[in-house]
């Protein structure tokens, strides 16, 4: 078995935005990751449980309906509690309501234990680049 990294993705909370979720799944897969998609309207538990069972290296949370801050709070603590405290946590989308200063928003999510926080309009490629760096995947490992 080759050393393919597994990534859990999904749209958290009562959020039903399904299209971006499918696109992300496709792009990540094409980039050589094993993708476990928990789909839309996923709870924190579903992300954590999927990550445990599949031995995932990262969880990428999407949120597009503005309630991201409420939905994501406590996710890192839940991971620690479940024994996967070192897993990478990324979040992106329209994660807060209204026109807030993104630097401030980013800091709030970093304080919540996320490793990377992306503003609206970020391309998936940017997150993939970060993922490779954070997981120590070198250029020769890429397919």
């Amino acid at each position: 078995m080759s050393d393919v990294k597994t990534v859990v993705i999904g749209v958290i909370g009562a959020d039903v935005h399904a299209v971006g979720n499918k696109i992300m799944e496709r792009i990540l897969r094409d980039a050589g990751f094993k993708v476990v998609n928990v789909g839309v309207m996923a709870s924190q538990d579903e992300f954590v449980h999927a990550a445990i069972e599949t031995d995932a290296s990262a969880i990428i949370v999407s949120s597009l309906y503005g309630h991201g801050e409420l939905d994501c709070r406590g996710l890192r603590e839940k991971c620690i509690e479940a024994g996967i405290g070192n897993i990478l946590l990324y979040v992106g989308g329209n994660i807060v309501v209204g026109k807030q200063d993104f630097e401030e928003v980013k800091q709030r999510f970093l304080n919540m234990g996320f490793n990377r926080v992306y503003p609206p309009g970020t391309q998936v490629d940017e997150a993939i680049e970060d993922l490779r760096n954070d997981l120590g995947i070198t250029a020769t490992d890429r397919k």
Binding site: M1, V4, T6, K34, I52, E53, T54, D55, A56
Partner: peptide, 9 residues
């Protein structure tokens, strides 16, 4: 049982 194929071992 436990773990998906290639998952937790």
């Amino acid at each position: 049982t436990g773990g998906t194929d290639g998952g937790n071992k």
